[in-house]
């Protein structure tokens, strides 16, 4: 069973619609103490890093998210939700994240003729081969992105894919470290392949 973590700052409705389309059973979780009853968690996020972390801590989510993860439950952070999995974010100054994946979140420096935010449809490159998350995924598919910050993991072996943008011409678009997953784009807004990604995450056991 999938639990969508509802701390008041996510596009919960879009994620529900996407999970319904792929016939997945889910619940929207509003009480942190109930997290342990789910095998897979989805951490959405829309807004600013510091504001979301503040709410996650105040409402008591942090402890329960960490307890679930240490018990081997799977968690998927989407967009800002992915960024919150890391140690630190530099949005509105510097604030601590959940620290589930080592690394920081920094503002993208746009390249020549590029704008910020990075918004629209883009594809993934340097995709990790033979990973279950990419079962039945088309290689050239585009996904919907809308963000100004990028995750910079400490260890490169957690990177599952990258995407072309910014002054370095790429940033990390999907990560996985043990049972922890993060996707920078919006799979729930990117049918059909984004839905396949969600399905594959749910099927990881």
């Amino acid at each position: 069973m999938i639990g969508i973590i509802n701390y008041g700052h996510g596009n919960i409705g879009s994620i529900e619609n996407a999970l319904s389309k792929i016939n997945s059973k889910y619940s929207v979780v509003t009480n942190p103490e109930n997290l342990l009853s789910y095998s897979h968690l989805i951490l959405p996020g829309v807004g600013s890093f510091s504001k979301c972390m503040d709410v996650i801590q105040r409402q008591g989510w942090e402890k329960h998210i960490k307890a679930s993860v240490s018990q081997g439950k799977y968690i998927l952070g989407i967009c800002l939700g992915m960024q919150l999995l890391f140690d630190n974010g530099e949005e509105d100054g510097s604030s601590k994240g959940l620290g589930l994946i080592n690394g920081n979140v920094k503002k993208i420096i746009p390249g020549k003729d590029e704008a910020l935010p990075h918004v629209g449809w883009n594809n993934i490159i340097n995709v990790k081969e033979n990973h279950n998350l990419f079962d039945n995924i088309s290689k050239n598919a585009d996904y919907y992105f809308d963000h100004s910050y990028e995750c910079i993991p400490l260890k490169t072996n957690v990177i599952l894919s990258e995407t072309n943008y910014g002054i370095n011409n790429k940033f990390v678009s999907i990560v996985s470290d043990r049972n922890i997953y993060g996707i920078q784009f919006h799979p729930e807004k990117s049918p059909p392949n984004g839905l396949f990604l969600l399905k594959n995450f749910i099927n990881i056991k």
Binding site: V46, G47, S48, K51, L80, P117, V119, D146, H147, S148
Partner: peptide, 8 residues
């Protein structure tokens, strides 16, 4: 932008 993110 502050409440919902500048992307919104």
């Amino acid at each position: 932008a502050y409440n919902f993110g500048s992307q919104c």
